[in-house]
Amino acid sequence: MRLTVDGQSFDIDADPDMPLLWALRDLIGKTGPKFGCGIAACGACTVHVDGQPVRSCSLPVGQVNGAVTTIEGIGTAGRLHPVQQAWLEEQVAQCGYCQAGQIMSAVALLDEVADPSDADIDNAMGGNLCRCGTYPRIRSAIKKAAALKTAGL
C-alpha cells in the first residue's frame, strides 16, 4: 500500500484495518502524532488528509484517500509554521503531549478561517483535550498565528 506522508511517498505493508496512527508511528517512524485515547476522543493523534483534520487513531489506513500531513510536515525547527511560531512565542505547552494534535487542528482552522473569533476557535478545538489546561494560551496563540499568517510570516 502506498501512502504519501509529509510530501514523501512510502510503501507500507499494512492490514487495511490498521489505524493510520499505527502506520505513521510504527511503520513510517513519524512519532509526532501521539496516541492518547485510541477512540478519537482526545485529539492527540490529529493529522491532515488532504488538508482536513482527522483522528488518525481511528481512521483505518485502508480508507486514507489523499496526502497525509503530520506535525512533522508543517514546519521544522529552522522553519516553523506560523502556528508553531505562535505556540513558541505564547509558550503554550506544558507537558506537550496533546500539542501536536492541537497545532494540527489550529492549522486546519486557519486554513479556512483567516481571522477566527473566540467562538470559531472554541468550535474548532473542542475535540482536542489538554489535561494541563493550556486552553487560554492555545486561544491566544491561534490569534497570534492568524496575525503572523496574515502578515505573511
Partner: peptide, 22 residues
C-alpha cells in the same frame, strides 16, 4: 461541522472496532 472539527474528523466510512470508538 465547523472548520477544524468536521464530523468526518472522527467519523469515517466504517464503524470503529474499538470499544466506544466512533
Amino acid at each position: 461541522g465547523n472548520p477544524g472539527l468536521r464530523c468526518t474528523t472522527c467519523h469515517f466510512s466504517s464503524n470503529s472496532n474499538a470499544l466506544h470508538g466512533p
